[in-house]
Amino acid sequence: MSRGLLYIEYTIIALSLAIMAVITFANVLSRFIFDFSISFTEEVTVNLFVLLTFVGASVGIYKNSHLGFSLIYEKLNGISKTLVSIIIGLLIILFFIALTYYGLEIVQSQMVRGQKTPSLGWPQWVFTLGLPVGCILCIVRTLETTVKSILQVRDESVSEQ
């Protein structure tokens, strides 16, 4: 599952970044050559950037590439390391659960109100859905990373004995 999910995440990131680059470049050319701005580019770019941010955070969690202070963690023994890993994992999961909950509330509110995007006239909830989807990916990756960390601590404890 991990590799398949990683492929999906990388595909979303690559497509989002490519679309953002193409439409932004087209808008710049349009402004300088034709003195005409393409109105929807900002709308699409901002919303894709939100999706890109949360899916990128999910990949960052998977690869352990977030900034961290590990001096204290490295000084702990097996049981303490396991406990700290669980606490950190739970805190991160609670944060993303809250973001998912409120993100879904926003999506639901936009659906009920029938909000449309200003330039394209698309349903706004389509773009806002990037927030809860990205958060769910972060929850999955946090669970995966926490379990991996606990197993690694267990293996270190076994090898030290």
Rank of each mutant, 00 (worst) to 15 (best):
L5V: 05
L6K: 11
I8D: 00
E9I: 04
E9P: 01
T11I: 09
I12K: 13
I12N: 11
I13D: 03
A14V: 10
A14Q: 06
L15A: 12
L15S: 14
L17E: 08
A18S: 13
A18N: 02
V22M: 13
F25E: 06
F25I: 13
F25W: 03
A26E: 09
V28H: 07
V28I: 15
L29H: 07
L29S: 07
S30F: 08
R31G: 13
F32K: 10
F32R: 10
F32E: 12
F32N: 09
I33N: 04
D35E: 11
D35L: 07
F36V: 13
S39F: 06
F40N: 06
F40H: 11
T41I: 02
E42D: 04
E43Q: 05
E43C: 05
V44C: 04
N47F: 08
N47K: 07
L51D: 03
L52E: 10
T53I: 09
T53N: 11
F54L: 15
V55H: 13
V55P: 06
G56I: 08
A57I: 15
S58E: 00
S58L: 09
G60I: 06
G60H: 06
I61H: 04
K63E: 15
K63Y: 14
N64C: 05
N64P: 04
S65H: 14
S65M: 14
H66A: 01
L67H: 10
L67Q: 09
G68Q: 10
G68A: 07
S70M: 11
L71T: 12
I72C: 07
Y73W: 07
E74T: 06
L76N: 07
L76K: 09
N77G: 10
I79K: 14
S80P: 02
S80W: 15
K81T: 04
T82R: 09
V84L: 15
I88K: 12
G89L: 06
L90F: 12
L91A: 02
I93K: 08
I93W: 08
L94V: 13
L94P: 04
L94Y: 05
F95E: 03
F96L: 08
I97D: 01
I97Q: 12
L99Y: 13
Y101R: 08
Y102S: 01
Y102E: 00
G103S: 00
G103R: 11
L104D: 00
I106G: 00
V107F: 15
S109P: 02
Q110C: 09
M111T: 00
V112E: 11
G114L: 09
T117E: 01
P118R: 02
P118N: 01
P118Q: 06
S119D: 02
S119C: 04
W122D: 07
W122H: 07
W122L: 10
P123H: 03
P123G: 01
Q124C: 05
W125R: 06
W125T: 00
V126F: 13
V126Y: 12
V126H: 07
V126C: 06
F127N: 01
F127C: 00
G130H: 02
G130T: 02
L131E: 02
L131M: 08
P132L: 03
P132N: 01
G134H: 05
C135V: 08
I136W: 09
C138S: 03
I139M: 14
I139G: 02
V140C: 05
V140W: 15
R141L: 03
R141H: 04
T142S: 08
T145Q: 12
T146Q: 03
K148G: 11
S149G: 02
S149V: 12
I150A: 08
